[in-house]
Design a protein around this nucleic acid. Structure first.
Lengths: 132, 132
DNA sequence: CTGCATGCAAACCGTTTGCATCCCC
DNA sequence: GGGGATGCAAACGGTTTGCATGCAG
C-alpha cells in the first residue's frame, strides 16, 4: 500500500477541505501555508500517485490546467469559459451512454465524462460591470 | 470579415482532408508539405482565429494538446487513454442534458460535450503483443 | 498604400524529471 | 540501514508573443 507521509496527508486534507477543484499550483499554495518547504514537484508527484490509486480524481477537463477532486464518485462538471473555474453538476450519471457508444466504435470503452461550459455567477457580474 | 490568406486556405483544406482530429503541430507538418516556410505560430494564430469565427471546432478534450476539427456540427468524441488519438462517436447529441443541468447550477450554460475514454483498436493490438 | 498577417525566435506556463539528501519502516 | 519520498532546480513540451518584414485589399 501507498506510504502515508506527512506531505500526502496534508495534500489530501487540503483538497478535501474545498468544494472547488483546485489546480496543482492552487493546491501547492494551500499546502504551503502548513508546510512552507514543500516543493511543487512533490505536490505533482503525489497528486498523480493518489489519482492512480483511486484516492482522488484527476479531472481531464478543457482549459490549460488539470484539476483535482477529493470526491471520487463519478459525477459531471461545468467549467467557466471566462475564468476556468470548475463546479460540480448534480444530475444523475447516465451509464447507458457507454452502451450506446460501444455500438458505434471499435474502441474498448473505459468511461465517459460530461463537461458543460458556461459563465459562472462571478463572471456574469463582471460582464455586467464591463458593459456599463 | 476574416481575410482569406493563402496560409488560412491551406490550413483549412488540410484540416478538412482528414477525419482524424489533428493537433496544431500535426497540422503544421501537413501544411508544411505545401508551404515549407510557414511558421508554427501562424498555424496556432489561424486555428485560434478560425475557431473564434466558427469555421472550425477547437476540441477542449483531456490530454495535453488541443485538437481541431473541420466538422462544426455538434458531436461527441472518444479519446484513447494510451495514445491520445481522438475519434468521433456517432450517437445523437442530447440537448436535454443542458436543460437538466440548468436547474442545478447558477452558471449561464453555453453548451456541453461528452467525452468517452477507452483504448483504440491500434493500442489494443499493441497490448496483446506486449503481453506475449 | 496601409494595416493586417507572416516568419522567426524568444518567452511563457504548466508539468516532469534528475539528483543529492532525508526519513520512515 | 535501505528504499522510497522529498526539496530543489533544471529541463521539457505545448503554446503564445514581440518584432521586423511581407502582402492582400
Amino acid at each position: 500500500m501507498i506510504r502515508l507521509t506527512t506531505q500526502r496527508q496534508i495534500i489530501l486534507e487540503e483538497l478535501a477541505k474545498v468544494k472547488t477543484h483546485p489546480t496543482a499550483s492552487e493546491l501547492y499554495d494551500m499546502v504551503r501555508k502548513r508546510l512552507p518547504r514543500i516543493g511543487l514537484g512533490t505536490v505533482y508527484r503525489n497528486l498523480e500517485l493518489m489519482a492512480e490509486n483511486g484516492m482522488i480524481l484527476k479531472l481531464e477537463v478543457g482549459g490549460t490546467q488539470k484539476r483535482f477532486d477529493a470526491t471520487t464518485e463519478d459525477h459531471y462538471h461545468i467549467r467557466c469559459s471566462q475564468c476556468g473555474r470548475v463546479d460540480d453538476i448534480d444530475i444523475p450519471v447516465i451509464d447507458s451512454l457507454v452502451e450506446s457508444a460501444a455500438e458505434s466504435t471499435e474502441y474498448q470503452i473505459l468511461g465517459h465524462h460530461v463537461e458543460f461550459t458556461g459563465i459562472c455567477p462571478d463572471c456574469q457580474k463582471k460582464r455586467k460591470v464591463d458593459l456599463q
